[in-house]
Simulated assay, not measured.
Amino acid sequence: MHTETPASCPLCQPQDETLIWHDEQFRVIAVDDPAYPGFTRVIWNAHAAEMTDLPPAARAHLMQAVWTVEQALRDTLQPHKINLASLGNMVPHLHWHLIPRWQDDLHFPDPVWAAPKHDPARHVIWHDSRLKAIRARLPECHAHIRSALALR
Rank of each mutant, 00 (worst) to 15 (best):
H95Q: 07
H95A: 06
T5P: 10
P55S: 04
M90I: 08
L77N: 06
L131M: 09
T5D: 13
R137P: 03
Q25M: 14
G38D: 06
T52P: 00
K132E: 07
H118G: 04
W67G: 06
I82L: 14
M63W: 10
G88R: 02
R59F: 03
H107P: 00
V124Y: 12
N83P: 03
F39K: 04
G38V: 01
H93W: 11
K81F: 08
D110M: 08
L54V: 07
H144A: 07
Q103P: 02
P55H: 10
D105W: 12
E50R: 05
D119R: 05
H123W: 08
L73R: 01
D16C: 14
W67N: 05
C9V: 12
W102P: 05
T40F: 07
P111R: 12
S8G: 14
A49K: 11
L131E: 03
N89E: 09
A136M: 11
T76R: 12
A7E: 13
E70Q: 14
Y36A: 08
H93D: 10
W126R: 12
V31T: 03
H144I: 00
H80T: 15
W44P: 02
D105V: 07
R146D: 00
R122H: 06
L11C: 15
R146F: 07
A114R: 06
C12T: 12
R74K: 15
Q103N: 08
C12D: 13
L98M: 05
F26A: 15
D23V: 02
